[in-house]
């Protein structure tokens, strides 16, 4: 338990929580934008246009096959060099996570849309409903139910992925942790264990409730 006190010393905990806030700020901005763009992208992918489908497919596969950290490097180091745009770490991070999140969300939307069986549409039309009615009262409610748990899971994945931004110089939770450990190198030599343990716990506390809710919704709705 030696050095556990480092967490409560001075403003250390407050600083760590500020780091968590940076992480969550990047995550939530990316998640919100990804959901909106992803829905649009997903609907576009269900359109029966060969060229459009091919383009979407290439975008999707390319973004998904590369590690997110590679994408971050491309944005942070690459864009600067190639186009002379100087992006801050945080901006590059949001940019990359939206590009990636849109692809993932789009794929979820697409598969949720095509997973509604044909006869659900047919039985709607057979009852004399208009196309708009069929979508609004039969197809969309079912799609949304399938989608919400999956979207929550994607959001937790994005929060976890946000931890990578420390590697492109963003001062978030891990970086703050490192700073605290460095500053107390002599007074609290075992701080690393507790600081990183605390960060591990904070990530868990941020993600676990979301996973729990997603699991509940999935069981209740399917």
């Amino acid at each position: 338990m030696q050095d556990l006190g480092i967490l409560l010393e001075g403003r250390n905990l407050e600083r760590l929580l500020y780091g968590l806030w940076v992480t969550l700020r990047i995550s939530f901005a990316s998640i919100a934008a990804s959901i909106i763009c992803g829905i649009i992208f997903g609907v576009i992918m269900t359109l029966r246009n060969r060229v459009l489908q091919a383009v979407c497919r290439i975008y999707l596969e390319l973004v998904r096959v590369l590690p997110q950290l590679v994408l971050l490097f491309l944005a942070y180091f690459g864009l600067t060099r190639a186009f002379n745009i100087n992006l801050s770490g945080e901006t590059s991070a949001v940019l990359v996570f939206v590009v990636w999140g849109t692809a993932e969300m789009g794929d979820l939307v697409r598969s949720a849309l095509i997973s509604i069986p044909r006869h659900q549409y047919d039985s709607g039309y057979a009852l004399g409903l208009s196309k708009a009615d069929v979508y609004m009262s039969i197809i969309l409610p079912q799609t949304v139910r399938r989608l919400i748990p999956l979207a929550i899971n994607l959001a937790t994945r994005m929060i976890k992925t946000t931890s990578l931004v420390v590697l492109i110089g963003v001062v978030e939770m891990l970086k703050v942790g490192q700073q605290i450990i460095e500053a107390n190198r002599y007074t609290a030599p075992r701080a690393a264990l507790w600081i990183y343990g605390a960060i591990f716990a904070l990530y868990f506390l941020a993600c676990f409730p979301m996973s729990l809710i997603a699991g509940r919704l999935e069981r209740r709705w399917t």
Partner: peptide
């Protein structure tokens, strides 16, 4: 519910302590 990066920090920098 935790990122690999944080798991690695704990293993590599935390556990030796």
């Amino acid at each position: 519910n935790t990122p690999l990066l944080v798991q690695l920090f704990l293993l590599y920098f935390g556990l030796p302590k």
